[in-house]
C-alpha cells in the first residue's frame, strides 16, 4: 500500500478583486476554496479543469510560491507552514515544477547546461565540476545532445525547450513533480514525445506527478487518479477508468461531452453544454447556474466531496440519482 506523500487539508486562497481604495471595500475571489486532496507516493494524480478554476493557484500553493489563507499542506507528515528555513529549503528540493510555456520559463541569457545546473549550484549539491557533469548527464537523459549544452533557449524548438525545463526540474532529485500544462503549448507531433519522456522519467527517478491540464485526453493518458476542479473546488475525484466510464458530477459529464473526439461519426452530444464558469457570491453550489439537475437545495447548500461509490468521490447533492 502506497503511503501519502502530500496531504492537502481544507486549503484556501483568496485574492482581492478589482475595487481598490477609491471604490471602498473590494470583493474577493476564492481561487482555492476549501480543497481536500491527497497525493499518494508513486502515483500520477491528474488535475483537470478550465481556465480560472484555481488549478494553477493550487500548484503555486504547493510550491510555496504563495501562502494559503486557510488550511494546511502536509508533506510526509509535516505541515509545511511550520518548517524552519533550513527545512523549507529541503522541501523546495523535494517538490519541483514544470511550466506550461517553455519560452517564458527559461532564462534567455543562460545556456541550456547553465539552466539545468543552476539549481545544483544554488543548493550547493556538489562542486562546480561535479554539478556540471550531473547536469550534462541529465541533459542526455531528457533527449538533448551534448553539443547543445552551450546553446541558448532561443536556439531550441518548443519541444526541446520543454526538455530543458524537465531536466531542470529533475536536477535536485525531487519526489513530487508538479507539471502545469506541460504539453499544452506544444505541437501535436511533439506532445506525444514529451508525454512518453515524462512516463520514462517517472519510472527511472521514482517520481510522483501532480499533472495539471485542461485536456481530458492528455489527462486520461497520464493519470492514475483524476481530480476535476471547478471554480476553486474539487467536484469529483476518481480512478481514471471509473471517471471516463461512469462520471458522476454533471460538470464532469459536460466536460467529457465537450471534448472533441477523433471519431467523425460520433452521434450528437447527449449532454447540453451551456453557460460559462462564472464566480458569484451566491450561496450553494458553484455549478448550479449551468446545471440541468438543479434543485432547491443547490441554491442554499454547497455540496461536499463525499464517497459515492467504492472508489469515486463527488460533490453533488444528486450524485448517484442522476
Amino acid at each position: 500500500m502506497a503511503s501519502v506523500l502530500i496531504d492537502i487539508r481544507k486549503l484556501e486562497k483568496t485574492y482581492p478583486l478589482g475595487g481598490g481604495m477609491l471604490k471602498g471595500r473590494s470583493r474577493i475571489v476564492r481561487a482555492v476554496d476549501g480543497i481536500d486532496l491527497t497525493v499518494m507516493e508513486g502515483e500520477t494524480l491528474g488535475l483537470v479543469g478550465e481556465s480560472g478554476c484555481g488549478k494553477s493557484t493550487l500548484a503555486r500553493l504547493l510550491m510555496r510560491l504563495e501562502k494559503p489563507d486557510g488550511g494546511e499542506i502536509v508533506f510526509r507528515g509535516r505541515d509545511i507552514s511550520s518548517l524552519s528555513p533550513e527545512e523549507m529549503k529541503t522541501y523546495r528540493r523535494r517538490v519541483q515544477m514544470i511550466f506550461q510555456d517553455p519560452y517564458s520559463s527559461l532564462n534567455p541569457r543562460k545556456t541550456a547546461l547553465g539552466i539545468i545546473r543552476e539549481p545544483l549550484d544554488i543548493h550547493r549539491i556538489a562542486g562546480r565540476k561535479q554539478n556540471r557533469e550531473t547536469a550534462a548527464e541529465l541533459m542526455t537523459r531528457v533527449g538533448l545532445s551534448g553539443e547543445q549544452a552551450g546553446r541558448y533557449p532561443h536556439e531550441f524548438s518548443g519541444g526541446q525547450r520543454q526538455r530543458i525545463g524537465i531536466a531542470r526540474a529533475l536536477t535536485l532529485r525531487p519526489q513530487l513533480v508538479i507539471a502545469d500544462e506541460p504539453v499544452s503549448a506544444l505541437d501535436a507531433s511533439i506532445q506525444a514525445q514529451i508525454l512518453n519522456l515524462l512516463k520514462d522519467l517517472k519510472k527511472d527517478f521514482g517520481l510522483t506527478y501532480l499533472f495539471i491540464s485542461h485536456d481530458l485526453n492528455v489527462i486520461r493518458h497520464v493519470s492514475d487518479r483524476i481530480a476535476v476542479m471547478y471554480l476553486g473546488r474539487i467536484v469529483e475525484l476518481a480512478e481514471k477508468d471509473d471517471l471516463y466510464r461512469k462520471p458522476f458530477h454533471p460538470y464532469t459529464r459536460m466536460l467529457l461531452a465537450a471534448m472533441p473526439s477523433c471519431d467523425p461519426g460520433r452521434s450528437g452530444q447527449t449532454v447540453t453544454i451551456r453557460g460559462e464558469a462564472a464566480k458569484s457570491d451566491e450561496e450553494g453550489c458553484n455549478f448550479k447556474n449551468r446545471c440541468a439537475y438543479r434543485i432547491d437545495m443547490c441554491d442554499r447548500v454547497a455540496p461536499q466531496l463525499k464517497a459515492i461509490s467504492e472508489r469515486s468521490r463527488c460533490a453533488c447533492h444528486r450524485a448517484g440519482e442522476i
Partner: peptide, 28 residues
C-alpha cells in the same frame, strides 16, 4: 502519425492508454 500520437480518444484501440504513445520522431 498525427492521428495515432494523440493521447486516448484517437489512437487505434483507444484504451485510455497506460502504454506509450506512438510518436513522430524529430520536429517540423
Amino acid at each position: 502519425g498525427l492521428i495515432e500520437s494523440r493521447p486516448a480518444g484517437c489512437s487505434v484501440g483507444a484504451d485510455g492508454g497506460s502504454e506509450y504513445l506512438k510518436t513522430i520522431p524529430g520536429a517540423v
